[in-house]
Structure formats: C-alpha cells, structure tokens
C-alpha cells in the first residue's frame, strides 16, 4: 500500500503553512519528517488525521493493483509527543476497554496482561491509575493502544523524547519489528534519531515535502546537506 499526499494546502489567516505538499509514502518503510520549528509538521499530521480541515489537496491510499481510496480515520494511529491517556482508568482497564470495542477487528487478540508484558509495564503497576504513571509509562500505553489498533498509517510526533534510554531502544526495536505492516511517519527534531531509525528522510520546508536522497553519501555529508536544505527553506520562507 502507498499513502499519497497530493497538493496539501493549509493556511492560518494569511500565513500559508502548507503550500501544496505532495509525497508518496510506502508501506514497510519508516519516514522521518524533519522540519524547523513552525514548519508545519504537526499541521500536516493534523490534516492527515482529519483534526484540521485542509484548504485543498487530498490524502489517499493506493493498493498494489493501483486502486485508490480516500484515507479514513480508521487507517490512522496518531501518537502525540505529550502522552494523553484517560487518567481515571488503570492500565488493565483501558486495555480491556480497547480490546472489547475492537472485538472482531483485531487479528489474534491477546489478553491485556500479555500486551502489558510486551511493553514491559510491571505487574505491580497494572492496577494503578494512569494518572499516577510517569510520563514515559503513559507514553508506552499510548503507543501500545495505537499498535493494538494496528492502523495502516502510524504517525509519531516526537515519540521517544520522554522515554529513558532503555525504553527508547525497546520502542525503536518494537517499531522496526512492526514496520513491514505499516507506513510509519515520525516527526522529530533529533537528526540522530531520524538517521538511526528511519529508512527515508523527508523535509518539510517552505510548505512543501522534499525527499532527501542519500545514495552512497557519507553520513556527515548527508547531515550537512539536510541542515543546509533546512536553512535554505527557512531563508526562502523569510523572503517570501
């Protein structure tokens, strides 16, 4: 499957943030969406997730046979940088609820505890209210809920920043192990994360999406190219 963004435009008042952004994201790859502060990464995600109405353009999915259909919210899982979970439930309860409302939709469903084992939430924490979870633990729950729902497109907004180093590695390998079934787009400011974890780097600058081909380029040179491109994008934006 492919996710095709076609000519996405979005303005806030007079400021045009997305100026016809187009790109084709492919299943089985992890994309790093890099851009400067305010370049429109979150706006792009919000448009894709139908949280914001875009001014023009479209998102669609294309299967191997070339047949296209519009993206629906069912196709998308959105993991926010600040984890948002219902604080009045325990980890077990939120999973029970999630599994029950998705009965028949999840392939090979497991018990709440086996999912919690999977993301290494300790047994003694599972009956605690999510309110009392640490930032990182909440992040794990949020990620887990999105992985259980198993949407085709996974949007991750700065997903690893609040995790400790061990949890970061766990989460990276988890995402990598699941990448074959998903189109994963990860927005980040951390160049190392983008290069270490992602198959492709896509820049969002000047309101458009640009693929940064690496080819055989040495790592340092590739980094320099990205930084230069982002600076140019910023300068263009300032001049526009």
């Amino acid at each position: 499957m492919k996710l095709i963004a076609d000519g996405i435009r979005k303005s806030f008042d007079k400021k045009e943030v997305l100026k016809g952004a187009s790109f084709t994201f492919e299943q089985g790859r992890i994309y790093a969406l890099l851009g400067r502060n305010g370049s429109g990464k979150t706006t792009f995600f919000n448009c894709l997730n139908e949280d914001l109405k875009m001014d023009s353009g479209s998102f669609c999915l294309e299967d191997e046979a070339g047949a296209r259909r519009p993206v629906t919210t069912d196709d998308i899982g959105y993991v926010l940088s600040t984890p948002v979970v219902p604080e009045f439930l325990t980890a077990r309860e939120i999973l029970k609820f999630f599994l029950e409302i998705n009965e028949g939709r999840i392939e090979h469903p497991q018990t709440p505890d086996s999912y919690l084992d999977w993301v290494q939430i300790e047994p003694e924490d599972r009956n605690k209210l999510l309110r009392d979870f640490s930032h990182g633990m909440k992040n794990k729950i949020q990620m887990l809920l999105n992985l259980i729902a198993d949407p085709l497109v996974l949007l991750l907004d700065e997903p690893l920043t609040s995790l400790d180093v061990v949890a970061q590695e766990e989460m990276k390998s988890l995402l990598k192990s699941r990448k074959a079934e998903h189109i994963t787009i990860l927005s980040t400011h951390i160049m190392e994360l983008a290069l270490d974890m992602c198959d492709d780097v896509v820049l969002l600058h000047g309101g458009v999406l640009t693929h940064m081909e690496r080819g055989d380029m040495p790592l340092e040179e590739y980094k320099d190219r990205i930084i230069t491109a982002l600076k140019e994008g910023y300068a263009e934006g300032q001049n526009a």
């Binding site: 919210t73 219902p86 604080e87």
Partner: peptide, 14 residues
C-alpha cells in the same frame, strides 16, 4: 476528565 484525552485515539471517534 475523559474525552479530552480519549478523543486523541481515532478508535474512540468511530
């Protein structure tokens, strides 16, 4: 206390 966090999940909006 509930929807502001749950609305983030697309499943909740099904």
């Amino acid at each position: 206390n509930c929807d502001s966090s749950m609305m983030i999940y697309n499943i909740y909006r099904r």
